[in-house]
Design a protein around this nucleic acid. Structure first.
Lengths: 206, 206
DNA sequence: GTCTATACAACGATAGAC
DNA sequence: GTCTATCGTTGTATAGAC
């Protein structure tokens, strides 16, 4: 108990640690989405929050740590929406296509993930473990679904559920690159969700 | 005519511009592959070549220009090998799988391309136009091949050649991410070429 | 044309005062 | 918890030797 009652804003004259942490996350997610993780500077994030950049580093000890916090929070939001789609009666693959469509409204986030998942392949990258875990989780979920289809005889004969799961994740990642790359040439921009559905159509029967 | 006969090496006491240029390209490609484009510094490249970093900037006026030269050179090498595979009797999709397998022996190059193609989705990235052109070219080639299969009745009914081409490129890009990400956990590492063949098996008949 | 030396602004990060 | 001051490194620019 080091602080008395505060308004939760900075204007009071001194800081409320918890409010600052959340505020930093908001601003960082916004800025990372706008200009990308690498272009964004800690000084700019700090400036928008209204503190100095060492002040920011008090809450997140490095730029990489801040990034990890942003990613984790984004994941939580996405997972909630995804689960809601499943609960609303969509099957797994439909829900994936809906997720993709939802992401298409947030190019900054898509770019952040596409760039980072490539960067983070380096074993010494700060987000390496995060992305390894994320891919393991996502692929495991897809495997379960394809196995269900396999048991129902609706998976293309000769197709391995694990390979199908990996191909599906690869299609989502790869289509994002093509989609982002065509941002300034809209007439050649692919429809990510439609491509994903075509991919499923080739893997599943009936 | 400012130079007399030289050995082509730096030890002679003064420079041969053309040889230096090639040496810089070698070293830069190596270093970019090791640590990525953004992490690599011009000073490190210059140091490995044995010149000062402004000396390097005499040959390549900026880091981005150096990058472009590295990419162009890599493309030439790859294209020659690809054409040779076609000439050796492999069909287009076989040649693609072979290309992938060849790349699997050069993780640094794979990482460079994976990282760059994501970075370069930003319209202001120095390699943006390069990657737009590259994707347009690669997809156009694939479309031609899928159309040929379509005319022969060997493309899965209801599949659009353009979508098939885009999915194929997406699978290659996406599988590279998964392959790179699993570099330090070899037991979970996917076989990129096998996945690509499974993808073709789902799209093509007979 | 080839290169060295030097300078600059911006970055991530640290040290230590309050 | 936040600050000022500072460090080392980066990409880039310019001046000038040969």
């Amino acid at each position: 108990m080091t602080t008395e009652a505060t308004t939760g804003t900075r204007s009071g004259g001194y800081a409320n640690g918890r409010a600052t942490r959340e505020e930093i996350l908001d601003v960082a997610m916004q800025l990372f989405g706008e200009v990308g993780y690498r272009t964004a500077s800690l000084r700019e994030v700090a400036s928008r929050v209204g503190i100095s950049h060492p002040g920011l580093l008090h809450h997140f000890s490095s730029k990489a740590v801040l990034l990890a916090a942003v990613l984790e929070r984004r994941d939580e939001v996405d997972e909630v929406a995804f689960e809601a789609d499943l609960a609303a009666g969509h099957d797994y693959f439909d829900a994936l296509a809906i997720l993709i469509d939802r992401n298409a409204a947030r190019p900054g986030i898509v770019e952040l993930y596409a760039t980072l998942s490539a960067e983070a392949t380096s074993p010494d990258h700060p987000a390496h473990a995060y992305f390894q875990d994320r891919y393991r989780r996502v692929i495991a979920m897809s495997v379960t679904e394809f196995e269900r289809f396999h048991d129902e005889g609706r998976l293309r004969p000769g197709t391995d559920p694990l390979t199908a799961a990996r191909l599906t994740v690869a299609v989502m990642d790869g289509m994002q690159i093509q989609w982002l790359l065509a941002a300034d040439t809209p007439d050649t921009r692919p429809d990510m969700a439609a491509a994903l559905r075509a991919h499923f159509a080739a893997l599943l029967t009936s």
